[in-house]
Design a protein around this nucleic acid. Structure first.
Lengths: 143, 143
DNA sequence: ATCTAATAGTTTGATAGCAAACTAACAAAG
DNA sequence: CTTTGTTAGTTTGCTATCAAACTATTAGAT
């Protein structure tokens, strides 16, 4: 459905995105992080940057349905990487944060992420990379 | 994992790709094509263009694992949209083709695909669209 | 001709992901 | 206060997807 006619934009985009996802999954495994998926990394990095976030905030940041997030966060909590506690000020809200064990994984995520960047941009000049990110941002923001 | 540091290329790329997928899924449903996913459309459009393809060829074209393809093709055959038969010249090979019932869905796929293109490019000038597809192609081919 | 290796496809088992329906807690209005 | 609506999150049911192990068939080498 991505490239029915002559406009191959989305076709390339979707295939690159799939390749990136598979790349990340393989790399996570290679680092001994079996059972972790790219979205798990996104969650943990977001918490590394922001210290603590609600389920709703996380859902927005990683762009996944709230029901998906419930599953991921519960798994990461079960593995000891995250902690989830009810906000005393509003008992509907769950506040999620990294544990120390979770924090120790961040360097791995950074390493893998840099490797992905390299895969991505090895065919592009610095200027082309700039152009590309600007165009992608435009499309993203206008959706 | 897509946007750990400052390089947001892949972050935008992945989010746009996800949005596109969800958009397609919703549109397929709106057209009464419940139970069909974007990949199903890719398979059927590929067969519309090329008449008949082996499982291996299809797997390459839609960029999905062969085991994934088995499931999708079998489902589409069960629904009467595809036909699968053993190649008499090499009995390992399965030759897949559209049925007439399957062919009747093609106009819907084209309509939906055009709508997606519009979502995608409404923030871009014609020149920007060109630039973007060229850069994406470069990244894609170099992976 | 007969092993051995390569190839095409399927099966199995597991996970990420969505949507819809649900529960619980809070907010607002009278 | 109590009803009514809104918001945060969870549960349930289903599909796409991959990887690894498997089967069946063909090709190649001696």
């Amino acid at each position: 459905m991505y490239g029915v006619l002559n406009d191959r934009n989305i076709y390339y985009l979707a295939r690159i995105s799939d390749k990136a996802k598979r790349f990340l999954t393989r790399e996570l495994r290679r680092h001994g992080l079996q059972g972790l998926a790219p979205s798990d990394g996104d969650i943990m990095v977001a918490l590394f940057k922001r210290r603590q976030l609600t389920m709703k905030e996380l859902s927005g940041i990683i762009d996944r349905d709230k029901s998906t997030l419930t599953g991921l966060v519960d798994k990461l909590a079960r593995l000891g990487y995250l902690e989830k506690k009810t906000d005393p000020a509003d008992r509907r809200v769950q506040i999620v944060s990294l544990t120390e064990k979770g924090g120790r994984l961040i360097p791995d995520f950074i390493t893998i992420s840099l490797k992905l960047q390299e895969m991505f941009s090895r065919a592009l000049s610095a200027h082309e990379k700039d152009t590309l990110v600007n165009l992608l941002k435009k499309v993203h923001d206008a959706w």
